[in-house]
């Protein structure tokens, strides 16, 4: 069972209180983007075995969106952080490196 802490309201709850909203830190392409760029944004999934960054929503709580860094194999949560960030904060990346040296995830590592 997955246990997450919502960085917006501070509540810690189990997974039925939250809803996963897909991969985080997607680069969106606006009008004039090429078909390739749009296709990558829309369909090319990271789907990693290991470290993953996701959007979550506290839907049975404060209702707000946030980000989570999580391991898809051990279900360990490395940390949650505000949705208004373009990349995971340094402390979370350091926490991951301590546990999983050499991890990679798209452009962050």
């Amino acid at each position: 069972m997955l246990i997450l802490t919502c960085p917006c309201c501070g509540v810690t709850g189990e997974e039925t209180e939250f809803h996963q909203g897909g991969e985080a830190h997607l680069k969106r392409f606006g009008p004039g983007a090429s078909d390739d760029e749009f296709h990558t944004y829309m369909f090319a999934k990271e789907n990693p075995k290991g470290v993953h960054f996701e959007r979550w929503r506290h839907n049975n709580g404060c209702g707000k969106w946030f980000h989570a860094a999580r391991d898809t194999v051990t279900l360990e949560v490395y940390g949650t952080y505000p949705a208004q960030t373009l990349e995971p904060p340094k402390e979370i990346r350091d926490a991951i490196t301590a546990k999983r040296p050499g991890w990679t995830w798209r452009e962050f590592a």
Binding site: L2, E15, H19, Q20, N47, P48, K49, H52, E54, R70, T72, V73, L75
Partner: peptide, 8 residues
């Protein structure tokens, strides 16, 4: 199915 990616 589970609501989030995993390999458990």
């Amino acid at each position: 199915t589970d609501g989030y990616n995993n390999y458990t």
